[in-house]
Amino acid sequence: MRRKNWYLIVGAVLTASMLAFTAVGFFWTPYEPSAMSAADKYAKPCAAHLFGCDQLGRDILSRTLEGAGATLAIALAVLAVGALAGLAVGALCGYHGGAADALVMRLCDAVAAFPSVLLALVVLAVTGPGKYNVIAALGVLFVPSFARLVRGEFLKYRDRDFVRSAKLIGVSDLRIIFVHILPNIWPVLLSGLTIGFNNAVLAEASMSYLGIGVSATEPSLGYLLKDAQGYLFTAPWYTAFPAAAIVLLILGVSLLGEGVRERMGVGT
């Protein structure tokens, strides 16, 4: 009998609840996230403000909801940019090989050799902070890891019999890449995506924490942490809730990825 896959269960529950939490934030927050109230400065968590209030009397639950949305949106956009570009580069390199492949892969090595946050720092120092700049900077940095992953898979499949037969009967390269090979690497890509997602959340949070991420008028979870650190002792709840949101989001997706992997492992 198959033993219960706790990773998958806990991961799925956590991820689903965090997604639900974030989704709520898109449509509804108990207060306007930027609305200030002098009477509620440093309010402790209570019935009116479940997560308490910050130094300007803003409701932290509302801000965390909004922040989770911003962080999630940025992470997904980064993932989309990184994964799509990585997929294209990796697929072409892996499938065709040759000098172009070697060159592109060395380029990827070069990009990957820098600590990614440092590189993003440089990019943002030039372009200035802002949501779209963060997405662009991080997105580009995420390309090499996906490219390498996809390329490896394509290398594996490009000399398989079903690919050769397809070539023989005149199927176009693009069709082979996308219709014949791509579905085979889907499970690997999925795991790559979960890990990439976590990295994207962390990277966005750390950049905003360092003050070079999103703008203050549209806070993300990382920005909330940065804002909160001055009040660690006066209002510890300000740090606690956004931090918990980041932890739960990442933990959930990590466990989910682990669960998927375990399930694949048990299945064969």
């Binding site: 600590p115 946050v117 440092l118 390498r148 992953l149 790559g192 976590n198 990277a203």
Partner: peptide
């Protein structure tokens, strides 16, 4: 495993 090393490097700098 290779991809799993990625977060390690990221954690390393953040």
């Amino acid at each position: 495993v290779a991809i799993a090393m990625l977060p390690v490097s990221l954690y390393g700098c953040t």
